[in-house]
């Protein structure tokens, strides 16, 4: 068992945004975190990567919480944020270097790992540029490269498809599937349900800070008695019926 979220309650101020969230993510598994804007997806992610502390409940990565061994816990996570966060003062190459430094990856190894990714994303000739001058999609590619070169055991990807061109989306999906085969766990939050349906093994549907439903596509169909429905159909109908939009 790789990531285990148990009864997580948490939020920004005293009032909890997340209420009693639980789910497990095993090795070689890809979970899709589905929910409307403001449902609590990003907040859940912030708790998992350790930017926020849970009020109650526990988050364990390979049996250890963040408090028990911060360095080890953090080293296992590669995080791609929703909006690209880059250093204004560092070049693309230096982003790779500082990531390698921070995660104890030897510099030569990091560059070796980065090379094919940079080629794939057509960034190889921009190593000396400041990524903060790039377009949104290219910034996102830089974030992807930096997360993948540390080869973590858990990838956390927040809204990965926004701003990427179709080729890059295809490449990213391939990369994620490759990592899954290699035994890494992936947690992805997204609104692009068609993509999620294609690649995710299980889904956690979050609404208003609570887990509304979880399971494989088959399990969800069964649960909502909608045989043959796509994730998109199920979700929108559910949202209407349950008044998610309120």
């Amino acid at each position: 068992m790789s990531l285990k979220v148990t009864n997580l309650t948490g939020g920004y101020s005293r009032t909890p945004v997340l209420k009693d969230i639980s789910f497990d993510l095993g090795d070689g598994e890809l979970i899709g975190l589905i929910g409307l804007n403001g449902a609590g997806k990003s907040t859940t992610i912030k708790h998992i990567i350790g930017l926020m502390e849970p009020f109650e409940g526990q988050i364990q990565l390979d049996g250890k919480t963040l408090k028990e061994d911060p360095a080890l816990y953090r080293k296992k996570i590669g995080f791609i944020p929703e909006t690209p966060l880059l250093y204004d003062e560092l070049t693309l190459k230096e982003h790779i270097e500082i990531t390698a430094m921070a995660y104890d990856v030897p510099l030569s190894t990091a560059m070796e790992r980065a090379k094919p990714l940079l080629d794939k994303f057509r960034l190889s000739d921009r190593l000396e540029w400041f990524p903060s001058d790039f377009s949104k999609g290219m910034k996102q590619k830089v974030m992807i490269v930096c997360a993948f070169i540390i080869e973590p055991s858990l990838y956390i990807i927040d809204e990965p498809f926004l701003g990427l061109d179709p080729i890059a989306i295809r490449d990213l999906i391939q990369m994620m599937e490759q990592k899954k085969k290699e035994g890494a766990s992936l947690l992805m939050s997204t609104h692009v349900l068609a993509n999620a349906e294609r690649i995710c093994d299980t889904f956690v549907i979050i609404d208003n800070g609570e887990v509304y439903a979880q399971g494989t596509l088959g399990e969800l169909r069964e649960k909502f008695a909608m045989p043959g429905a796509t994730l998109d159909e199920m979700y929108t109908q559910l949202a209407d019926k349950e008044g998610f939009l309120k």
């Binding site: 360095a71 080890l72 921070a102 995660y103």
Partner: peptide, 12 residues
């Protein structure tokens, strides 16, 4: 200003 120095493992 940057979130990364809270995420990096080796920032003791």
């Amino acid at each position: 200003k940057t979130v990364y120095f809270r995420l990096y493992p080796n920032t003791d």
